[in-house]
Design a protein around this nucleic acid. Structure first.
Lengths: 152, 152
DNA sequence: ATACTATAGTTGCAAGTACCACCTATTTTA
DNA sequence: TAAAATAGGTGGTACTTGCAACTATAGTAT
């Protein structure tokens, strides 16, 4: 029966995902901890690197965090001189957050290191997996993101 | 050139993974927040559900957390009456941590809900992805786990 | 023009996450 | 039996996170 098959695969996916998330979180933590920042802080820098300067609210959407959390993480990074705020000339309430030169250097260095890690991981896997992995992960992320939460 | 290809794929994997981790973390947070516990607390309950009673140190390995962190998370769960400690008769220093009936019920309910989520996600994906996803995620997790950290 | 509403961002609060270094008690080993 | 190792917990510090409440600016409807 197809319902059973789906449940079996859902269960397998559930276990695989929760393990994967734990492993990568832990790995990222261990890599990033050599530097001056935490994972969340690094994520914020990455978003800026990939998408350019943006407003805190926009940043919060990318990071999937509350605006207050985002505001505080940004504040920490301002103090560490990895990002800078500038008032948005088109809206007196808004501001733009962007990488400083320091921040750009740091996030590029960390990204490079993590990409080396991924390459090392891929090297041990068969070619078919190397080819399929990124696309599959993107699909899974997109599918999950489309769904809304339970307790809205 | 194969080196270039590997780098391109490593970069793609890097982006896909970091996004996936963020999305699923956020999703789990939103699902679990309806209940009495946090993500880490839920992870701890899950490990006990899957592997049975164990010592704090063993639990820390499964969770990939420091033993002190594990100890405190367990303490919180004892207070909430989801896990219980019993002294290990074979070693006066050790103890065993296990789910209470309450804890078992809670984690089963949450797991069921998340598996339903996974099933809903799978439903929208082609059969080939449904079949391959869990295996691929497991491979990736295993490969990452084999590697050691940078700043040991 | 002016009051009402909406939006951007911050702050107070509470709980949780996380690690390091250090401590106590017990066990193992030399 | 003394020394070293191990299990677990504590103190301390810093960060994460969301909710609710707040300030200031912007937009809207009289």
């Amino acid at each position: 029966m197809s319902k059973d098959r789906l449940r079996k695969q859902g269960t397998a996916l559930y276990h695989a995902l929760s393990h994967l998330v734990r492993v990568y979180q832990s790995r990222d933590r261990e890599h990033i901890c050599c530097y001056d920042i935490s994972i969340t802080q690094c994520n914020l820098l990455e978003v800026l690197l990939d998408h350019g300067a943006m407003r805190p609210l926009n940043l919060a959407q990318h990071l999937m965090l509350d605006k207050s959390t985002t505001s505080r993480v940004a504040e920490t990074l301002v103090k560490k001189n990895y990002v800078a705020r500038t008032p948005d000339p088109t809206d007196g309430r808004a501001q733009l957050i962007d990488l400083t030169e320091n921040g750009r250097e740091l996030v590029l260095k960390i990204r490079d290191e993590l990409i080396e890690e991924e390459m090392a991981i891929l090297r041990d896997l068969p070619k078919s997996v190397q080819d399929e992995a990124p696309g599959l992960l993107i699909r899974l992320a997109k599918a999950a993101q489309k769904r809304t939460s339970c307790c809205g």
